[in-house]
Design a binder for these strands. Structure first.
Ligand SMILES: [Mn+2]
Ligand SMILES: [Mn+2]
Ligand SMILES: [Zn+2]
Ligand SMILES: [Zn+2]
Lengths: 132, 132
DNA sequence: GCTAATTTTGCAAGTCATTCGCATTCCTGC
DNA sequence: GCAGGAATGCGAATGACTTGCAAAATTAGC
């Protein structure tokens, strides 16, 4: 584990939400080159340390977001607020059963799944309604 | 409804799976400029005629895929085979209940959700096992 | 029908996330 | 210390998507 990889993993471990490459590059504890960030994230994800998904949001465009797999392959799904751009953790993935059912029904093997929600969070709904 | 928009909508109505912009541009019935394709797809999606999601696959990179909303806002979710790159329709979305539950639990309002599976389809599993 | 205003389109250039080639630096084992 | 392989930085390239602008098409007013 090199310095660059360790720093990225550490930042993502501390993070309360998935982070994009641009967010990681701005983080004070990440001091390596952008190409190194991309290469390190690939490395870490391939080894099962990280989990990622691509999310498009009008304000930030299309970016891949990374988070730590809490404990060996466990992962969460997220809600993304299109107003404040925060993520809300929906808790551990509960799709194992459904995936198995679909695999049996269609004969395919699922190697990955992507699921997330977008909308407006409670806080942003309040501030919008009171202001406008 | 202009000629460009009509042709795109028609191609997507006939399609059995979501299509990317590059696939649409290659389609014989689509004869307009790439910028027009993008602008038309935005137009059609905003009006509720289309549904889309961003999918990354190693062979094709990151692209947005479009499909028709069968009947006024009904939509499917899909399995994507990373070997033959075909999509399998998982049927109409059954997440209404879950979304409502999450909205109540966290107080946010969900305006959109993304869900899809990736893996290897039955056909590709066979041909792989018999060849290698 | 005929002209002016509005919308849509094509083209070319621009943007932005991500990748790649290559030279330099780092690390590891001897 | 030194050689060899891996990792990094830098800058250029890639590819999806967007945008500015002028030409073409559609619509509205008469
Ligand atoms: Mn965002
Ligand atoms: Mn594909
Ligand atoms: Zn918010
Ligand atoms: Zn297949």
């Amino acid at each position: 584990m090199t310095k660059a990889r360790r720093s990225l993993l550490h930042v993502l471990e501390q993070a309360s939400e998935p982070l994009s490459v641009s967010a990681l590059l701005q983080h004070p504890d990440v001091s390596c080159n952008q190409a190194t960030v991309y290469r390190s994230l690939h490395y870490l994800e391939q080894r099962g340390y990280l989990d990622s998904f691509v999310l498009h949001c009008t304000d930030h465009g299309t970016e891949r977001y990374y988070s730590c797999t809490k404990e060996q392959a466990e992962h969460s799904h997220w809600f993304h607020c299109t107003a404040c751009h925060r993520f809300i953790d929906l808790g551990a993935c509960l799709m194992k059963e459904d995936l198995k059912r679909w695999e049996q029904q269609y004969g395919f093997t699922v190697s990955d799944h992507t699921f997330f929600l977008t909308g407006v969070c409670a806080t942003c709904k309040e501030s919008t309604s009171s202001t406008d």
